[in-house]
Design a protein around this nucleic acid. Sequence first.
DNA 1: GCCGTTTTCGGCCCGACTGTTTTCAGTCG
Length: 571
Amino acid sequence: MKNAEVAAMLEETADLMEIAGENPFKARAYRKAAETISALREPIEELVKKKQLHTIEGVGESIARDIAEFLQRGTTTRLEQLSKKYPTQLRTLLEIQGVGPRTVAMLYDKLKITTIDQLEEAAKSGKLTKLPGMGEQKVKNILEGIQLWRQHQGRIPLYIALEIAERIVNELKDLEEVEQILPAGSLRRWKETVGDLDILVATRKSQPIMEKFVNLPEVQKVLAHGPTKSSVMMDNNFQVDLRAVEPESFGSASQYFTGSKAHNIALRNLALKRGLTVNEYGVFREANGEKIAGETEESVYEAIGLIWIPPELREDRGEIEAAMNGSLPKLITIEDVRGETHSHTKWSDGFASVEEMAKAAMKMGYEYIAITDHSPPMGWGVKPEDFPKLIREIRMTSEKLSFPILAGIEVDIAPDGSLYMDEDILKQLDIVIASVHSAMKMDIDSMTRRILRAMENPLVHIIGHPTGRIINQRPPYEVRIDALIDKAQENGVALEINASPERLDLNDENAKAAKEAGIILSIGTDSHRPEHLAFIRFGVAIARRAWCEPQNILNTRSYSNLLDWLKHRRI
DNA sequence: GCCGTTTTCGGCCCGACTGTTTTCAGTCG
């Protein structure tokens, strides 16, 4: 599947077109096609073969030709011609805050600057100020932008962004001028990583709020400071924007700043078809400018003829059509979760006892918890001879607390697909999660075969963290998710949505594909401490982004219902 | 370059902030 490569080629073309100063709508057309293709589930090679490229929204004659050529020879004539005028490496310069395509073109035309190092040198030596439109302040901003670029790690994981957002909201919410405050943007959509924070306030007097915001102790640099919008860089190199609107516009503003960009564009286009314009201040009739909605998000969607769409769905993945014809899913909520399916104790690499974990589950209001400690060959895995003792402890604790505790295991899948635990022990356990923890660099066919074989074992209930990724640290191993989904359907195995905030695995897109195939997903926190049980909110967020309803999730079942499912698997 | 329950030509999401301008271009989200 070459969709990602094709999308990257189209992005590159769009960047170079903008640098070359071509019609901006042309560049936008390429960018739009790139977005659509990277979200496509079908391999684009198939569409080329079937001569169906034109069925992709935003792909016309020219882009179709580019795609076909790219798949054949790895580049396009258009790209070659563009890069004769402006070398491809110029694209890196666009990553500097405050440097856009017009500036990049000028830097190259006048000074032949192609790299960030050269840009830095030119800025320091005073060459830049001689260029038109370049003052001292702009040069200073570019130098700071370069410094930030060098430090910046890109998007940060959701759970860290959440902590920052909660801290800032706490510092601002008690100001008397603040009527409402809401972290919006990708954070509100619970996207797995967050590029920057958008915080929104409803107020009639924004100045004191903006003042306090730009002077927060953790602010490293003020990027912008106006009456309706301020932007700051925090000392961890994380950008936070604060926007202020009148209370009458809070609904449309929260809709607008929650995004995603693709969702908003689709929404606006729909509104335009109905003679309405939408902006952050409200919904207006095009004919006479009359405002017809804006105070609440519900009113905004209603004015456009839609029911309110939960933020997690706002990615332009079909939610607008679903809202139009009343087929939005009834998304799972955290209250629907009735138990924990994946947890560890001191028996392997956890930090608490069986009893402490069970008590934490009771405190969460759960009906049950599964203890699923590791197997060998993980150094800390429970040895086969120790399992009888572990099982006995689980049964006794369960009786003592009058709380259902499932005896389980997270067993390692060996490179050949066999399991690192004797079958007669697995048979004694209530629940078996099988996961890959080693030999992750296998090729895609071997890895797929490996996991499929584990799924064929009737003792296995759930495949744990099916792609092995650690967000921002380790990419997923190569595996055919589609094949796992097919096998899950065939054999009645569940795939996990691992809710550990560093994993979130399956991710939202894969989980959506699994949900659409009708397989069961299990949200497990992979808790190693009692407080980790709270990670469930991240797993539920992924499930919501995957359009899951309660019946798609294993641990929304009652205890007896869960036991039935676990036993059914073994008949 | 793409697209069409107003259009096969003429639009394409749109507003805020900054800096260098003296009326606006560039960048960003």
